[in-house]
């Protein structure tokens, strides 16, 4: 079967987009998001490749690379939500910047603790640095710094899923009730996956969360090269 897949130029594209759409169809049917399409598509693609004994290369050449090709322009378009929410950012500029900066600092301190605690190797430690930020920026950053982009992706997804599920309970636990602060907390800690949950809490939460994604992403890009030196 692997030979058959290898002869196709569309196998990887169909497998990725098909499994992604399948997850979306399930969510539509249930009336809410019961499974993350990215996670579901990843698991299904991995399962198909493993069970049919098909190499990742075959999948990548027959569609994977086409999807990845669009990732840079798509990430650039994050400027659109940033532009739309600039008024909100301006009004609370201090809180947005200080909150996101403190979040990034806490995250970097956590990574440094992992480096010492588990005696991690340089590339493994670097892999963790982009963990809290949106996958599109995180993947590129991991690559630039010399980490393992694939593992960074897995860590980011784990973070997002956990954040999306646990955010309401955690916000209650820490008594974070200000809508703007709730949104920033979710966006800074669990990026787009968390934001999908923030949108359910309210409009301000949703806007603040997507704002925090971009601000945290940019701050992490600036801070990560410095912290990467610790692992070198």
């Amino acid at each position: 079967m692997s030979d058959l897949f290898a002869s196709s130029a569309f196998f990887g594209l169909l497998l990725s987009a098909g499994s992604f759409e399948l997850a979306r169809a399930v969510n539509r049917r249930m009336g809410r998001e019961v499974c993350s399409p990215l996670l579901f598509a990843t698991l299904l693609c991995c399962a198909v490749l493993l069970l049919s004994g098909t190499d990742y290369e075959i999948y990548y050449e027959s569609g994977g690379k086409m999807l990845e090709y669009l990732l840079t322009p798509a990430t650039i378009c994050l400027a659109i939500p940033l532009y739309r929410q600039f008024a909100l950012m301006r009004k609370h500029a201090g809180a947005v910047l200080a909150g996101c900066l403190a979040g990034v600092a806490a995250h970097m301190a956590g990574c440094a603790a992992m480096l010492v605690l588990f005696r991690m190797e340089g590339p493994e430690y670097i892999t963790l640095l982009p963990k809290s930020i949106t996958t599109a920026i995180g993947k590129g950053l991991s690559q630039e710094l010399g980490g393992y982009p694939a593992i960074t992706m897995v860590t980011i997804m784990l973070t997002g899923l956990f954040g999306a599920v646990a955010a309401p309970a955690l916000l209650r636990l820490f008594r974070i009730t200000e809508p703007m602060a709730q949104g920033l907390a979710i966006g800074a800690s669990s990026h787009a996956a968390g934001t999908s949950r923030a949108v359910e809490l309210g409009d301000i939460q949703g806007a603040a969360s997507s704002l925090a994604i971009v601000v945290t992403g940019l701050l992490t890009v600036a801070a990560a090269p410095l912290f990467a030196k610790l692992g070198g």
Partner: peptide
């Protein structure tokens, strides 16, 4: 590196959410 990935995925996320949320709430 499964263990550090799991620790950062859960505890790291909780820490960042608390720090960002509490500081920005205090400032607002």
């Amino acid at each position: 590196m499964l263990l550090p990935v799991l620790v950062m995925g859960f505890l790291g996320t909780i820490a960042v959410m608390a720090v960002t949320g509490l500081l920005s709430q205090w400032m607002i």
